[in-house]
Design a protein around this nucleic acid. Structure first.
Lengths: 336, 336
DNA sequence: CGTATTAGCTAATACGTATCAGCAAAGGAC
DNA sequence: GTCCTTTGCTGATACGTATTAGCTAATACG
């Protein structure tokens, strides 16, 4: 059978089955509850099968006013955590016949991404950690939006237990006897990070431990950022005995610098990350961290988004944040 | 200004500018060499600007027979190397107004991905490491395809110097005095990996070093795979003094296992990876590896693909493979 | 001045699908 | 038998754009 030059259309199927194009569309198109005689339906299906018909999703989208595409924007796709979020979105979206267009804001600003996605007529957007509040006000109009780990004020969202994550890290370190505790996190005003930070410090204060401002290091949430931050922490005359990093990349960088400086981990310094990306188990020693269900977070965001596309009025019953879990590994030990 | 319910079309712009829809299309659409009076063009452009017109890419694609979308398939998006390839494709594609739909074959088989991408009417495909040769024969018909690191027999492709990469690793280890050399790589028949392997062993033989079959460990090219492979290598009574891993994930896993087993690296065991992903610099000690320009590889694939979309007859002058480079870090040292 | 040429624009159509109004036939109620 | 309802299908149209044929007016040329 020669490969078709032009792809098979509903017209081709109609001719083959001896019915009208409209009937083919009724059988193969959206509405499964369309009134078509069983015999006709069968005949159309067989013709479609025989010709190898595949619906042209662009044409379908044009008439339905849908592109069946979703945009997902994250700060950094090379961070496995965000990649997992995207993967979660992708899986759910794929099942519903949607495709996802991922983008990150490392090199291209969010506003420009949104411009391009809008030109693509994406039906919806998932935004994670891109500071939706600080976007130009009309950048998101006319599109359904779901936020991840942001305050769900103007748009609905899903959340992980960021506050809880910070608290777990703090309690773990406190439980090991640490009182001299530092925090490494980003300066950027991303709500999820802010919550992790707040949870951490709240737990410290609850335990009567007053944080020191010189032990709060702000740096881009990357490996390089973690290295820099740890370098300045180690340079000070007075060193913390435990550090909570706002994500695992920071922790990996911090660990690297500490080991290179000859520090014993966890002997002289305990380290807790956040996210539990695969990297955490590759480091030596393995990283103690707080596991965030990234994939499930993305999946849940996608489900909410798809739901709202069908019914824009759908207001999610305010969901519990996804549960987080402390994973104790090799970078934390009793205070000396 | 109220946000528009329905998006602005060429008809709206035409009405606003007092011209026909066709004229608007001539001004704003593809052909820049269309004959339109300067004054009219100016007026249309101003109207478009004023109304905030954005072309509907779906509609444009429908009539032009293009979707302005490219599919990219790789084995594993969580491998930063492949992610970089995708990023390279994405950057070039974005500049040309194309969007890319990435997919990996960890959970969904390539054939199913291709099915979905085809339904999306993607204009072209970039395939890296998915074994294009073993796909159903018609899975790629009717679509422009460019392969990465595959033999460019049925489809054009771009390549990195995989053979050279293996050779560089071998010569580095040989130069340090190692003669007891092992290889860890995937069993799957992916051409790029095969070439790295071949380059390695060819250099060994050229140096008069005969490889031992029990030191060739086959395992999935992941961190976990590297750990397993190294475990079996260490379990044997006779240990190699140097190991070349077909990628950095394998090397990371191998390093982890070696360190956990109490081996001194590089004192008792030298380790060379391949790819030079960011992970390589986070490990302690830092990983010696062969740098492959992943991003440029993807970018070049995208350029070739776009070129062929404009001119399907375009046969690339057979390009030199992209240069690779040995990066000596901390996991290799002189043989004991 | 008459004719050929060109510039500048528009009407009409097509891309492949979904959907709606409407038609013919068949059934159902009496 | 008439009248009403339902079933099963089709013709026509629309989605937003690109493109081509063709029209008008202006210009060029002899």
């Amino acid at each position: 059978m020669p490969s078709p030059i032009r792809s098979i259309t509903t017209h081709d199927v109609a001719r083959h089955a001896g019915v009208s194009q409209a009937t083919v569309s009724l059988v193969l198109g959206g509405n499964p509850r369309a009134r078509v005689a069983a015999a006709t339906r069968e005949r159309v299906l067989r013709s479609a099968e025989a010709l190898g018909y595949r619906p042209n999703i662009l044409a379908r989208g044009l008439v339905r006013g849908r592109s069946y595409a979703l945009g997902v924007l994250v700060p950094d796709l090379s961070n496995p955590f965000y990649l997992d979020v995207v993967t979660g979105v992708q899986r759910v979206a794929a099942e519903a016949g949607y495709v996802v267009l991922p983008g990150d804001t490392r090199e291209v600003p969010a506003a420009r991404h949104l411009e391009a996605l809008r030109a693509r007529q994406v039906d919806g957007l998932v935004l994670d950690g891109v500071g939706a509040a600080s976007l130009p006000p009309d950048a998101l109009s006319g599109t359904e939006v779901v936020l991840v780990d942001e305050p769900p004020e103007r748009w609905p969202g899903v959340a992980s237990g960021a506050l809880e994550a910070g608290r777990l890290a703090a309690e773990h370190l406190l439980g090991l006897g640490h009182r001299r505790l530092a925090f490494i996190g980003p300066a950027s005003d991303v709500h999820g990070f802010r919550m992790r930070e707040r949870g951490f410090f709240r737990a410290l204060r609850d335990a009567g431990v007053e944080p020191r401002s010189e032990w709060v290091r702000r740096t881009p949430p990357t490996i390089a950022g973690g290295q820099r931050a740890m370098r300045t922490l180690l340079a000070s005359h007075d060193r913390p005995s435990g550090v909570f990093c706002a994500n695992d990349l920071l922790a990996a960088g911090a660990l690297k610098t500490a080991l290179t400086a000859g520090l014993a981990v966890p002997g002289e310094l305990s380290l807790v990350g956040c996210d539990d990306v695969e990297l955490a188990r590759v480091l030596t020693p393995e990283l103690t961290t707080v596991a965030i269900p990234a994939r499930e977070l993305g999946a849940r965001a996608a489900r909410l988004l798809l739901r709202r596309l069908d019914d824009p009025a759908y207001a999610p019953r305010s969901d519990r944040p996804l549960p987080v879990k402390l994973v104790v590994r090799g970078t934390t030990g009793a205070a000396g």
